[in-house]
Design a protein around this nucleic acid. Structure first.
Lengths: 249, 249
DNA sequence: CGTAATTTTGACTCCGCTCAATTGGCGTGG
DNA sequence: CCACGCCAATTGAGCGGAGTCAAAATTACG
């Protein structure tokens, strides 16, 4: 039959971009689907794209056409204000969705840059919308993803608006550790993909302050730092730092 | 016929909650629909709800079931962190959508409180999802609303992360003025619905700083303030303050 | 009309920024 | 393989913007 004549290469491509085969499935798709249902979602990803460290997946101002799911690697998103100031608005790792900012205005508002060699699944947005109209669990899931991004951003607003520098950095480390754990990496030992400057931009402080605080956390026995290598020694201690009210009350 | 026997009260209710008749239509629904298409959307709103000044529409932690469109009035959203600190994460006025944060985790993460007597349209979320599966323009519109909320939050992150107190307050005033203009109010003269403390919380500064900056802006001839009454005198000047790089470069 | 809440203003303090020098890591080319 | 140069990170000294504490003025509201 005709189906048997599909060239090996095409089969390979299909396999390579098949969501149903992806080990990040539970991170970017609804859970509890039959394999049959899952395979209908394989149509969502049109192709994959590699992004080399330092290169950008898309730039602020570019027309929006697709969402991207991180397969592996690490990204930062940056926003550039009218007067040229640049602010890091988020860090993204495997299984997270990029490009949600572009839906509203039909162009991207931020720039997404790889902090290490990375790969993403390209999901043309028209296809995402079409599938989620036909497939309720996907619709539900997609809405949750959008909503969680809003909640995440509000968490950052809380961070920036009401915490002091040391609390912010502690919260940052705890959050990073949790996200890495969820992806099967060590919770206590990791390599920072971003510079002190990028951490500082994200957390609303200067790179020198970040550096000083790392040193202080180390003196206090909370972590061990050597450049980009971080080992968390006392996670409970970090959580205490991050939650401590300003004045002892 | 039976349809003729619909009691007058029910007709009235239908009229009162009809999106197709609402003068905020262009703020919360897709534009360019036929009146026929519009009337299918009348099913989205189940009822209206009044919220008295100081009362809350919902609280953080409560189960999520519906979205709300502001008909008139003014709301603040607040987030309470583990250690009890409260942060204002946004202000909402007529035509804006509340409750988007609740979709992801099926409970609300923030509390929405009316800052003046207000009224909202209640839109059961299941109905929103159902209608947006059947009606493409609504789906598209809803996705845009979600995305714009993300973009808005990122703007606030930029504000909090990379601007100084006076720049933040100037940006706040300019933004408020623009949103009021879009709703047909005066761009230059308005009444602040929130306290200095709430502005400060939103902008990541203390209420005393807000007050001092209002006074300074007044001395500099940018605005006129008497308590909650604000009149913008020099909007271009405010924009200059908000965009000025830290060091004179 | 009186009491509470909000706002304004002042004086002082301190956290985080600026400026600057130094150290450390890493890739490149001699 | 080591030397060089570049970039990132660390550390110090001094300063300034915004916070804290406090008191007075003004307004809102029951």
């Amino acid at each position: 039959m005709a189906a048997m004549n599909v060239p090996a290469l095409a089969t390979l491509t299909r396999l390579r971009t098949a969501c149903s085969q992806c080990n990040l499935r539970e991170l970017c798709l609804p859970v509890g689907l039959s394999s049959e249902e899952l395979s209908t979602l394989d149509n969502m990803v049109s192709t994959r794209r590699k992004v080399r460290r330092g290169d950008s997946l898309f730039y602020g101002g570019e027309p929006f056409s697709a969402l991207y799911a991180v397969r592996f690697g690490f990204f930062k998103s940056t926003l550039t204000s009218g007067d040229g100031r640049e602010q890091v608005t988020g860090f993204y790792m495997a299984g997270e969705l990029l490009g949600l900012d572009g839906i509203g205005g039909e162009r991207h508002t931020c720039t997404l840059t790889a902090l290490e060699d990375s790969e993403v699944c390209v999901m043309p947005f028209a296809r995402v919308e079409e599938l989620s109209r036909r497939f309720e669990p996907l619709q539900r899931h997609f809405h949750k993803v959008l909503s969680r991004e809003i909640v995440r951003d509000q968490g950052v607003m809380m961070l920036l608006g009401s915490m002091r520098a040391e609390e912010r950095l502690a919260a940052f480390l705890v959050n990073l550790s949790q996200r890495l754990t969820a992806r099967g990496f060590s919770a206590s030992e990791f390599v920072l993909r971003m510079t002190r400057d990028e951490i500082g931009s994200y957390l609303g402080m200067k790179l020198e302050t970040v550096s000083r605080l790392f040193s202080r956390f180390q003196e206090d026995g909370l972590i061990e730092v050597h450049q980009k290598h971080v080992r968390i020694i006392d996670i409970a201690g970090l959580k205490r730092v991050m939650a401590q009210a300003h004045a002892a009350s």
